[in-house]
Simulated assay, not measured.
Amino acid sequence: MNKLDTVRNLVKDFDSTSRLYQHLNKTTSYYGTDTLLTPAEIHAISLIASHSNINLSQLAELLSVTKGTATKSAQKLVKKEMIYKNFAKGSENIVELTLTDKGTIAAENHKTYVDYMEKQLIEIYYDISDQTTSDLVTINQRTTDFFNKLIRERESEVKK
């Protein structure tokens, strides 16, 4: 097999791996509770867990969504008994979010899962040579730069 064919196969494999990762990031899980959570929900729960008494505006900013979207997410999480919504002390319009016991369990199990995933990925890459590691970092950066360029081009095309 010549180099061009080898590179084409590598790109094809990268695409397959990327699709698997995208699929993984769309899957739901219980995270040790009796309630099925979407990736967006567990992400919000994790942010609430790591930011004591976060308000809706702060959550929206961290999620890169509108305050309205953050409010709807919070309402779903209240219904799922994952968080509490309460007015901040001394305020009648700032709503703070805190985890319920069930939300805390989900956040802790999600953290355990993320740590496990990181450990497994490190094991996959750990035994490769320093040169190969360096080459992969360079390839990843070049790929990221290329994808960002394509995104900017598409976004500027849409704005016209």
Rank of each mutant, 00 (worst) to 15 (best):
M1T: 01
M1Y: 06
K3T: 11
K3G: 01
L4V: 15
D5S: 13
T6Q: 10
T6I: 10
V7T: 12
V7R: 12
N9R: 12
N9C: 05
L10Q: 01
K12Q: 08
F14Y: 11
S16M: 09
T17A: 14
S18K: 09
R19A: 04
L20T: 08
Q22V: 12
Q22K: 11
Q22S: 13
Q22L: 14
H23D: 08
H23W: 01
H23M: 08
L24E: 08
N25Y: 00
K26T: 15
T27Q: 14
Y30M: 12
Y31P: 01
G32W: 00
T33R: 01
T33E: 01
D34Y: 02
D34G: 10
L37S: 11
L37Q: 09
L37F: 08
T38C: 05
P39W: 04
P39G: 11
E41F: 03
E41D: 06
I42P: 00
H43V: 06
H43A: 09
A44S: 05
A44R: 00
L47I: 15
A49K: 05
I54T: 10
N55H: 10
L56Y: 01
L56N: 12
S57F: 07
S57M: 09
S57Y: 07
Q58W: 00
L59A: 00
L59F: 03
A60W: 03
A60M: 08
E61P: 02
E61L: 13
S64L: 07
S64I: 06
S64V: 08
T66Y: 02
T66E: 03
K67G: 03
K67D: 07
G68C: 05
A70Q: 03
A70D: 01
K72G: 04
K72E: 06
S73D: 02
S73W: 01
Q75V: 14
K76A: 11
K76R: 15
K80Q: 14
E81W: 03
M82Y: 05
M82P: 00
M82L: 11
M82H: 04
I83A: 06
I83C: 02
K85T: 13
K85I: 12
F87C: 06
S91F: 07
E92S: 15
E92D: 12
N93E: 03
I94H: 04
L97F: 06
L97A: 04
T98I: 05
L99D: 04
T100D: 04
D101G: 08
K102C: 01
K102E: 00
I105P: 01
A106V: 04
A107H: 03
A107L: 04
A107P: 06
E108F: 08
N109L: 07
H110I: 01
H110N: 15
T112R: 15
T112D: 02
Y113N: 08
V114I: 15
V114Q: 11
D115P: 02
K119H: 09
K119C: 06
Q120P: 02
L121C: 10
I122W: 00
E123Y: 05
I124C: 10
Y125F: 13
Y126L: 13
D127Q: 12
D127E: 10
D130C: 06
D130R: 04
T132A: 11
T133K: 15
D135L: 14
T138R: 13
T143N: 06
T144E: 05
D145L: 14
F146D: 02
F146K: 14
F146N: 09
N148T: 07
L150M: 14
E153I: 15
E155S: 10
S156Q: 12
S156L: 10
E157F: 13
V158W: 04
K159Q: 12
K159W: 00
